[in-house]
């Protein structure tokens, strides 16, 4: 059985043209014919991604330096969840510390973080305050932190495109999207799932290539059944690797894993 040309990542017009000339299978399509048909980079179209054994993967995963938020109790939980190539979702009601944790992480992974904020939530004063507590050289940290404001979905996708080129010269360990909810809520309901999948697909390819972790924050919503759950439904729940639910009673914050490769756990913590 041969691979049909229609299974390649080619526009319909080219596939149709080739079919009219009797080219249906990749075997028939040589390098010179591909060039005449205006197919750029034909070799890479057919290329399968590289495989590796779990042993090799284990080695590269062990090299990952865990992230820190300077909150010991929370770090116990986060350091296990946030890993290279993995998308971790922080969800919770307003005031449960989602943005605070993001700021702490931005300080903890100093100089190697991209902070994408979508809802004007980034308070530079608060960031400076946290940094002053934990880091000796605040100025250097602030200078190295890349903050990007993307207030709608188009800007968010453009940011991802920008990062593609930017990352070839810069090394990061953490990408934060503070509130993925805001840009997505501007999109029509039926289009959301595939927009989410496409965005995360692009981010994952980047994360795998450049070895960084992704943290996104999300809102809670009430479902018709009366239960509260994270926004954007089951397909969103599926595409994130980990989900951590944040809650707050008085001054005591609580983080609980709802979805994780590890055993579900719960920690209580306080912001300094």
């Amino acid at each position: 059985m041969n691979q049909p040309i229609s299974s390649l990542n080619l526009p319909d017009s080219i596939i149709g043209k080739l079919a009219n000339l009797g080219f249906n299978y990749c075997n028939d399509l040589g390098e010179n014919v591909a060039q005449r048909a205006n197919i750029p980079d034909y070799g890479s179209l057919k290329r399968a991604p590289k495989r590796c054994t779990a042993l090799e993967l284990c080695e590269s995963e062990s090299n990952w330096k865990p992230v820190t938020s300077f909150i010991p109790q929370l770090d116990c939980l986060l350091s296990k969840e946030i890993a290279s190539g993995v998308v971790t979702e922080l969800c919770g009601l307003p005031g449960t510390g989602r943005t605070q944790i993001c700021l702490h992480l931005a300080v903890g992974v100093a100089g190697e973080t991209v902070f994408i904020h979508t809802n004007n939530n980034l308070s530079v004063e608060r960031l400076k305050e946290i940094a002053e507590k934990f880091v000796p050289d605040v100025g250097a940290l602030m200078q190295k932190l890349l903050c990007i404001e993307a207030t709608n979905f188009t800007e968010l996708r453009a940011t991802v495109q920008f990062l593609k080129t930017w990352l070839s010269n810069n090394q990061i360990r953490l990408l934060i999207v503070d509130s993925i909810a805001w840009p997505l809520k501007q999109q029509p309901l039926m289009e959301r799932p595939h927009l989410i999948y496409r965005l995360f697909q692009e981010l994952r390819i980047l994360a795998n290539l450049h070895n960084f972790a992704i943290v996104v924050t999300n809102d809670l919503t009430t479902r018709n059944t009366g239960a509260t759950s994270s926004s954007f439904g089951d397909s969103f729940y599926h595409i994130v690797n980990n989900r951590i639910l944040l809650s707050r009673v008085n001054n005591r914050f609580c983080a609980k894993t709802l979805k994780s490769a590890n055993k579900n756990s719960e920690v209580f913590f306080k912001f300094e």
């Binding site: 990542n9 399968a48 991604p49 054994t53 779990a54």
Partner: peptide, 23 residues
């Protein structure tokens, strides 16, 4: 661990190409 072969495919084209490679 050496017996587990991991193939990370992010797009449908990756998946199809890999399946033909396995074939």
């Amino acid at each position: 661990l050496g017996k587990i072969i991991v193939n990370r495919c992010y797009t449908r084209y990756d998946l199809i190409n890999s399946l033909y490679e396995i074939k």
